[in-house]
């Protein structure tokens, strides 16, 4: 019984973390229609920004976290202005944009490794244990679950009820028509990059508090987010979160019987099963 509740708690924590990656990735995909692999390095950069502000400049953790989220957002915005916007204007294929994002991921990751070394860095975080339904959860992990939940809700509300959200929906339905009716699609896309990358930054920062930071952490986070999006349904807020939860549960219940190092393999098996049997994902757009 105790194992079961701990497994459920762990699954929800993992699912919430994947959801934070999936939300931004999905949002960016919905307006640009390409797999932005540089999304992973935005998460890592957010984590490292907080690390730099707290350990080198001695800033307060809350101020540093806010600054980290904003800097991840600006990094994503910069990616769009410097690279993707130019590629979009030239009407290049989504493969070209994917390769460019792969280049961004690789080079920014290398810059992080040069600046902060390849060593694993940890934050000085408190590890108070709470008890939820017989399963243990740390303070950081509670923050992960809360952020995953609130940001999904917030994003869904923004997309539904604000002018900006309506513009995002219009661009994701048909960018050409959106431009004709007077929506500044480049501006909307730039803001989407900012928002999506800032959410990824939250994921990176929380990973830093939970387990620690490494320059290549973005790749792992990214892959889970992408898989969650595909199995949940690309271009759909709820789909990304639903896919994340399914993935979190599948992985954590999977390692009940299979050794833990096969977690990644389990998630890819699920991805392939979905791609072959239900390519549109759990929730169809």
């Amino acid at each position: 019984m105790e194992i079961l509740s701990q497994l459920i708690v762990n699954s929800v924590i993992a699912g919430a973390m994947y959801a934070l990656m999936a939300l931004g990735f999905n949002l960016i995909y919905s307006v640009t229609r390409f797999f932005n692999l540089a999304h992973g390095v935005a998460a890592a950069a957010g984590g490292y920004a907080v690390f730099y502000l707290t350990s080198s400049l001695g800033q307060n953790v809350y101020i540093a976290t806010a600054a980290g989220i904003v800097s991840a957002g600006f990094l994503g915005y910069g990616f769009d202005r410097l690279v993707f916007l130019r590629l979009r204007r030239r009407k290049t294929s989504s493969m070209v944009q994917l390769v460019a994002s792969l280049g961004l991921l690789t080079s920014v990751q290398a810059v992080l490794a040069i600046l902060f070394t390849n060593e694993f860095q940890t934050f000085p975080a408190g590890h108070t244990l709470y008890n939820v339904l017989g399963g243990a959860i740390t303070g950081t992990q509670t923050a992960v679950v809360a952020s995953g939940f609130f940001i999904t809700l917030l994003l869904a509300l923004i997309l539904r009820h604000t002018m900006f959200g309506k513009a995002v929906n219009a661009v994701s339905d048909d960018a050409e028509v959106a431009r004709i009716v007077g929506i500044d699609t480049d501006r909307v896309t730039g803001r989407v990059f900012f928002m999506g990358s800032a959410i990824a930054g939250i994921a990176g920062i929380l990973t830093g508090f939970d387990t620690g930071l490494g320059p290549t952490m973005g790749m792992g986070l990214l892959l889970k987010g992408v898989i969650a999006c595909i199995i949940g349904g690309m271009g759909n807020v709820w789909g990304g979160t639903a896919g994340s939860m399914l993935l979190g549960f599948a992985e954590n219940f999977g390692i009940w019987k299979i050794p833990g190092q096969w977690k990644d393999a389990i998630s890819f098996v699920i991805l392939i099963a979905f791609l072959l049997l239900r390519p549109e994902g759990m929730i169809k757009k």
Partner: peptide, 9 residues
């Protein structure tokens, strides 16, 4: 890594 990432971009 930085070199080949940048060259891809």
């Amino acid at each position: 890594q930085a070199v080949y990432g940048l060259s891809l971009i």
